[in-house]
Simulated assay, not measured.
Amino acid sequence: MNILFYLLSALLLAGGIAGFYYFADWPGLARAALVVLGVVAAGGVLLLSEPGKAFVAFVRAAVAEVRKVVWPNRKETTQATLVVFAFVVTLAIFMWLVDKTLEWVLYGLLLGWK
């Protein structure tokens, strides 16, 4: 049964594209509307298939999960941003110190370059 939905949606999509080229004398916006109409119709038919119904159920479950999320308020967001910024600055200073130490050991002590 799903194969019929797939074939019908492919035909609708192909019809929209064919209409774009068949009606070459129409304005570009009207021709683009034919393609969009074909894509929307093909998508609508695909949503009637079993995988399409499973996709709709997945989207509904995802939306329900997003509604359960407790989003941070402005104060919490600012605090988290400052913690991340402080960590990045600290890590940058640490990486700079490691780089300069390795540079001194390799070039200053081992190779004798100045």
Rank of each mutant, 00 (worst) to 15 (best):
V89P: 10
G108Q: 04
L8V: 11
L8N: 10
V56P: 04
W71L: 04
S49H: 01
L7A: 13
A32P: 10
S49G: 03
W26F: 07
T90W: 02
V35R: 02
V89M: 12
L11N: 05
A61M: 01
L109T: 10
L34N: 02
A42E: 00
G44L: 02
L111Y: 15
A57K: 04
G112F: 02
T78G: 08
E103S: 13
V83D: 10
A18K: 01
Y22G: 00
G16Y: 00
L8A: 13
A10Y: 08
V69I: 03
N2S: 10
L109Q: 12
L34A: 06
V84G: 07
L106H: 14
L11A: 11
L46E: 10
L7P: 07
G16F: 00
K100V: 15
E103G: 11
D25F: 09
V98G: 06
V98R: 09
L111G: 11
E65Q: 06
V84E: 10
A61S: 05
I3T: 13
P27I: 07
D99S: 12
T101W: 14
R60E: 13
E76W: 01
P72A: 02
I93F: 03
A42L: 00
W71N: 00
D25L: 08
L12A: 09
R31E: 00
V45I: 12
S9T: 00
I3G: 11
V89E: 11
G43N: 10
L37T: 13
P51G: 05
V105C: 03
V105R: 05
N73V: 01
K100E: 15
L11K: 06
P27V: 09
G15W: 02
L91V: 12
M95K: 14
A30K: 11
L97F: 11
F94Y: 13
L91G: 09
A14V: 06
L12C: 04
F85V: 14
L47D: 05
K68P: 04
G19A: 05
L97V: 09
G16A: 01
L8P: 07
V66D: 06
G28W: 12
E65L: 05
G16E: 00
T90K: 04
